[in-house]
């Protein structure tokens, strides 16, 4: 029998890899992909919890997370296209108007 703990560790590792990509990559598209990676890690966690607690609540949350991920990807890529049109920049360190 596979324990719940293993699923939690798997999702923890995937979340960490996604966060590492989010913090270190320059390309904006890869940064969005890292966000999707983190959301997937959370989904693995929720579905495993739902299975081991024998309750559907986690799976409901997973469905909503998937819908929000779709909305987020659409908005993020629209922002990316607007950025390309105005500045022709696809890297995070080329956009420094706010002096961040």
């Amino acid at each position: 029998m596979i324990e719940l703990r293993w699923y939690i560790w798997l999702s923890l590792i995937v979340f960490t890899i996604g966060m590492l990509g989010f913090l270190t990559r320059r390309n904006l598209i890869i940064i969005f992909m890292s966000v999707e990676l983190m959301l997937n890690a959370v989904n693995i966690n929720l579905v495993a919890m739902s299975h081991y607690m024998q309750d559907m609540r986690g799976q409901m949350l997973t469905l909503f997370v998937i819908a929000v991920a779709a909305a987020e990807a659409a908005i993020g890529l629209a922002i990316l296209i607007a950025l390309f049109r105005t500045k022709a920049a696809g890297h995070v360190d080329e956009v420094t108007e706010l002096r961040g």
Binding site: L4, L12, Q54, D55, M56
Partner: peptide, 18 residues
Amino acid sequence: LFLGLRAVKAGYTGLHNI
């Protein structure tokens, strides 16, 4: 997170079993 999640157990059981 590793140290925090080490203690997690699936204690509660709901209605939707296999």
